[in-house]
Computed example of a mutant assay.
Amino acid sequence: MFKDKHIVVGVCGGIAAYKAAGLVSQLRQNGADVHCILTEHAAKLVTPITFGELSGNDVTVDMFANINKWDVEHIALARLADVFVIAPATADIIGKVGNGIADDMLSTTIMATKAKVVFVPSMNTNMYENPIVQANIRKLESLGYIFVEPESGHLACNVTGKGRFPQLNVIMEHIYKALYSKHLLKGKKIVVSAGGTQEDIDPVRYISNRSSGKMGYSIARAAALEDADVTLVSCTHALPEPVGVHMIYVHDARELEKAVNAQYDDCDALVMAAAVSDYRPAVRAENKIKKEQHDHLNIELTENPDILYGLGQKKTHQFLVGFAAETRDVIEYGKAKLAKKNLNLLVANDVAQQGAGFNVSTNIAALIYKDGHIEQYPKMTKDDLGHIIIEKIVEGIN
């Protein structure tokens, strides 16, 4: 995730300083070369030795202590950094940077770097909501500094409100975006569906399929990385919500159809990665069907709407992407589906192949285009394939 990237983590003197240790550990586990700068107050809350052990590098606190080389350290770290992360970011450091003050190692290094800087504010609610702090945040955002919004909840000062240190996965997503986003979809609206629909038999049983939703979530995450306005219509609650994505949860095919149609007219692209059950029970039992009352059970099925076909029929400007999960004749079936449903792009995969099926984190895909062109991709992570699909959408809508 962060292989060969140099990340400088600045730790300020807030009570959430101990949580920054987990962030440093996660960054290093994901391949980053991590260097830590602690303010003097942070060093009173969490020992620099902790961050040294977790990062595998020397930790800097005092700008003038232990000078053992004549490469001015704040300049050296400023040049080294691919991205700067200030976590937790206190009102003090936000105010210093916002007003051009550089009076310690951390603020001086931030001033000297040309890397992107990600602030992770964490503080008392009243401090965070103070108009001065908010004005400083707005000023820094206007200058290109990135802020991760704090969470709401119970704080160490025994009050409840906004100011909690965010979850690590949220911070990691912001760092990833700061490093890798090309901003290719800024101003564009992308709709993605994911997961397998669930068609109720009775209140406790349903008909579904093996789709986990991972592919759709990877595509939504990749679109958000490129600054798109992303709506993810999800048939599952089992996966973590991608950062910066608007979520709509649905249950069955008819709910999915209603949700995607409501988003369709003004979107630039729609990716139908959800696996829609072809059939549903003709009648849903109001109460649980008791096996003691039936020697055998026949369930009459009726056909679900063909959502993708309907979208293709009313397509105007949208770039429409479909999926085909097959077990044989993948390309032939894929070409037929693309033509029938009026798609711009179809992602076909043979789910009988190991590593290309459901409930795994990898995929093997063929991308089939409207002009008949086909691109074959070997086994890769669904996240990597998600980025490829988004790149093809960028080419298609631009």
Rank of each mutant, 00 (worst) to 15 (best):
A135K: 14
G144T: 05
C36L: 00
Q134V: 06
N68L: 03
R138E: 15
D33S: 15
K116H: 10
T47K: 05
N99M: 14
A16S: 14
I86F: 03
W70A: 08
M105K: 02
E129V: 00
L23K: 15
H154A: 14
S142H: 07
K139C: 07
M111S: 15
N30R: 15
E129D: 09
R79I: 05
K139L: 07
F147G: 06
V120F: 04
L54D: 02
N68F: 08
N66P: 01
F147Q: 01
G31M: 11
T47Q: 12
T108C: 13
N66D: 13
L140T: 13
V120M: 06
G95Y: 07
D92V: 00
E73K: 06
P121D: 03
F147P: 08
I132W: 08
M111D: 01
G144C: 08
S122N: 06
I110Y: 03
A21Q: 01
I94T: 02
K114V: 00
M105V: 05
I132P: 00
A20D: 10
R138G: 09
T109F: 07
G144S: 06
G56D: 11
P131M: 04
P48W: 07
G22R: 05
V133Q: 04
I93T: 00
Y18I: 06
M105C: 09
T108K: 08
V61Q: 10
W70S: 10
T50I: 11
M127K: 13
D33G: 11
T125P: 04
T47I: 03
L27R: 02
I49R: 00
A65P: 05
A112D: 02
V83N: 04
T125G: 01
K139G: 02
K114M: 08
Q29L: 13
V118L: 14
A91R: 06
P150Y: 13
G95E: 01
A78C: 09
S142K: 13
A112Q: 03
V120L: 04
I110E: 00
A17N: 03
F84L: 08
E149R: 14
T125H: 06
D33T: 15
E149H: 13
G22Q: 10
R79G: 14
A21K: 10
A16R: 08
L45M: 14
F51H: 03
G52C: 12
I93R: 00
F147N: 04
G22A: 07
V148H: 01
S142E: 09
N130T: 03
K19L: 06
T125K: 07
V97A: 12
R79S: 13
L54I: 12
V46A: 04
R79D: 11
F84A: 02
I75L: 09
A78V: 10
G95V: 05
L77C: 09
L23S: 14
E149Y: 07
N57H: 15
V24Y: 08
V118P: 14
D104G: 07
T90N: 11
V59Q: 02
L38Y: 00
A81S: 10
A17W: 01
C157I: 01
N66S: 15
L140N: 06
L140R: 10
N68H: 13
D71E: 15
T39E: 03
N30G: 12
V24N: 08
T50P: 01
M63C: 06
P88C: 02
Q29R: 15
T109E: 02
K19C: 01
K114A: 11
E141H: 03
H154W: 08
A76L: 11
A42W: 09
I110C: 03
I86V: 13
L54Q: 09
I110T: 01
L140H: 12
A115S: 15
V97G: 11
I110R: 04
